[in-house]
Every structure is written in structure tokens, then in C-alpha cells.
């Protein structure tokens, strides 16, 4: 999956600027006092180039899933800009967005929930064709069979229902459905986190093969740092609605500069007993603050070992510190984490 992502002359297929997504819980009663606002995503910016994989990592509540959903208008952006192939998506009507969706697809986390239990696998995979008026009785079944073969499923199972398939197979069905329109970008929302280890490996390999074959760009949303390292070209780390660090994966994993990235890497276990015995973990204090009432300034400051007064007062910008390695921290410092 290696593509040269330092090539800045290419134009991004997906370009996100200052994306903000706030959720306001509306009360159904009139005259009720306005409820709190969830600051899910607060000013994220990133580019996704054709054929590459950008990993989006972070812990629960960091806004990574909302970011992915905002790309498809499954979550409504409060402000900011999302450009697909140069076309602005924010503010598009559902109809106008429909055209875009043929090139921008998503694979969901839950392989058991994301398929309609009342549709056969063949119907589910064919649905995008039907929606976009591209189904013909002559070609449709062939396309479905082809998509199934691409994801390693035997087309003769097209008439079965999802409940007859295992988690890994259902995830393959979900991928086939996303693939059948030949999209340019695939949002992968935790595509393997619900799967067993050995099955997960199969899906990861499949995604790599498909990218090689079709040149699709992936926005890979995951909490598992190992999986993200394995599949990504570049990685963005999110914390409480903001991207705190974004870099080529080698730079990010070998010389992380943001204290949160460092803590995250240090906390993730390694399947290597000797290395585990030698590791010195950075254990963060406390929990992630609530996104309804995020801390002022740098959002990580409440748990950050380096926090100073300035961190409470000024929001650190995401600044490129060379080689496309951008960090949002007042005191960045590269550090090797084992």
C-alpha cells in the first residue's frame, strides 16, 4: 500500500478544512431550556490523496467516527469545508450529495448490524446499483458476482441471508457493497475491530489487495494503533475533537512529538513478552474530559505531564514541523517510544 505521500504536487481527492461538528440535544418539549452542546469535532483539517491510506486514530469520544460520518453527511458539519475532487460537500442537498456518494463510500464497524437482515446478500450488494439507477437485468447479476469474487466470497451464496455468514464474511459483504460502484474513496469506520484476530488479518489483507487493484483511497478510522500502522501511509491522531498530530506513519510511530501520541503508543500492548518487560509505560492520569465541556486551550492539558500556563490559555495550532509532520502542542519534542 505504499504510496509516496510526500508528493505535495498531487491534488487531494478529499480535502477537509476546519471541520466543526457540534451536536445539540434538542428537547422535544417547547420552552425547555437549551441543553448542552457536544463538541464532537472542533476544527479538523486534513487531506487524503488518491490511492493512499490515511489512518485516523484516537480513543472513544475523540471524534474520529464523527469525522468519518461528516464526510458522507451522516453527521451534519456545523462549519468548515469538505471538498471532494474540488467540489464542496458542505451544504449540498441530499440529491446533489447522491452523485458524490457513488465515489465516496463507507464500510461500517458492525458487521452484524450493517446488513439488512431481510435482504439476501445479493440484494444488499446490488443496492447501490439500484439506488443510482445503474442496475440492468443483463449486467447487474454479473456485477454482483464479480464484486463478491473481489472480496473472496463465492457468488453462489448471493441468495443467502446475512445471518448465515460469520462476522468476517459479513464484513466482506459490506466491502463488496461499498465497492460495486468503483468509488475513489472508502471511509473505513473500525472495519476490523469487531472481528476475531485471525479473521481480522484476512480483512486487512483484503483491503490492501483491493487498494492495490483499484487504487482506492482509504480513510481508515480505528482505535487499534497496530492495525493503523499496518494499513496506513499517513496517520492522524485525534484527541477530544482535534487532530493533535499528523505525519507519515514512519515518522509518527518512530518519533512521535505530541505527548498524547507518545502516551498512546506507550500504553498500547505489544505481542512481544521481552519487549513488554523492558517497556516503561507513560501512564496518563484520569480520563478523557467530557466533550460537552472541553478544557480551555489545549484539550490535552488536563492529563498532560508537560502542561504549563500557556496550555490553558492558548489553543496550540497544528503546525508543520518539517517533512509533513504537523503537531498541535506548545512544547513538542520527538521521543522514541518502545
Amino acid at each position: 500500500m505504499a504510496t509516496d505521500s510526500t508528493d505535495t504536487t498531487r491534488s487531494p481527492v478529499l480535502s477537509v478544512r476546519d471541520l466543526v461538528v457540534h451536536f445539540q440535544k434538542k428537547s422535544s418539549l417547547p420552552f425547555a431550556k437549551p441543553t448542552s452542546v457536544v463538541h464532537a469535532v472542533c476544527g479538523s483539517s486534513f487531506d487524503l490523496f488518491p490511492g493512499e491510506t490515511l489512518g485516523l486514530v484516537g480513543e472513544s469520544g475523540c471524534g474520529k467516527t464523527t469525522t468519518g460520518r461528516a464526510m458522507l453527511q451522516l453527521a451534519e458539519p456545523t462549519s468548515g469545508s469538505i471538498k471532494f475532487d474540488g467540489q464542496e460537500l458542505v451544504g449540498l442537498s441530499r440529491k446533489e450529495m447522491g452523485e458524490i456518494r457513488q465515489n465516496l463510500q463507507i464500510v461500517f464497524q458492525d458487521p452484524f448490524g450493517s446488513l439488512d437482515p431481510k435482504m439476501t446478500v445479493g440484494q444488499s450488494i446490488a443496492e447501490p446499483l439500484a439506488i443510482h439507477g445503474r442496475w440492468t437485468d443483463e449486467e447487474g447479476p454479473g456485477l454482483v458476482a464479480e464484486a463478491m469474487r473481489h472480496v473472496g466470497l463465492d457468488p453462489k451464496f448471493a441468495s443467502r441471508f446475512p445471518n448465515e455468514f460469520s462476522g468476517g464474511q459479513r464484513q466482506r459483504i459490506g466491502i463488496a457493497r461499498a465497492l460495486i460502484l468503483n468509488p475513489k474513496v472508502l471511509i473505513l469506520d473500525e472495519p476490523v475491530s469487531a472481528l476475531d484476530v485471525s479473521v481480522q488479518a484476512g480483512v486487512i489483507n483484503l483491503l490492501a489487495d483491493l487498494q492495490e487493484k483499484f487504487g482506492i483511497a482509504y480513510l481508515m478510522i480505528a482505535h487499534d494503533l497496530s492495525v493503523v500502522r499496518h494499513v496506513s501511509d499517513r496517520v492522524a491522531v485525534m484527541y477530544l475533537g482535534r487532530i493533535v498530530e499528523i505525519a507519515d506513519k514512519v515518522d509518527l510511530y518512530s518519533a512521535p512529538q505530541h505527548p498524547y501520541t507518545q502516551a498512546l503508543l506507550s500504553a498500547a500492548p505489544l505481542a512481544d513478552p521481552k519487549a513488554e518487560r523492558q517497556r516503561k509505560r507513560i501512564i496518563l492520569e484520569g480520563d478523557v474530559p467530557s466533550p460537552t465541556n472541553p478544557p480551555s486551550g489545549c484539550r490535552f492539558r488536563t492529563r498532560c505531564p508537560k502542561a504549563q500556563d500557556i496550555c490553558a490559555n492558548e489553543i496550540p495550532d497544528l503546525i508543520d514541523r518539517g517533512q509533513n509532520h504537523a503537531v498541535a502542542c506548545h512544547f513538542p519534542e520527538a521521543m522514541k517510544i518502545i
Binding site: M1, A2, S166, G168, V197, S198, V199, Q200, A201, G202, I204, N205, A208, L225, S226, V227, V228, R229, H230, K249, V250, Y253, L265, A268, L270, A271, D272, A275, I338
Partner: peptide
């Protein structure tokens, strides 16, 4: 199982080992 898990400590462009079947 061991071959199926990627590592975040090192880079590898190798494919993960995949146990066929269920």
C-alpha cells in the same frame, strides 16, 4: 494467531498471516 496481529513497534509491509476458514 501470532502472525495475524500487526505490530505498532515496527514497520512491515508483509502480509498478515491469515488462517483460512472458520
Amino acid at each position: 494467531l501470532l502472525g495475524a496481529i500487526p505490530s505498532h513497534a515496527e514497520d512491515s509491509d508483509e502480509r498478515l498471516s491469515q488462517i483460512p476458514g472458520a
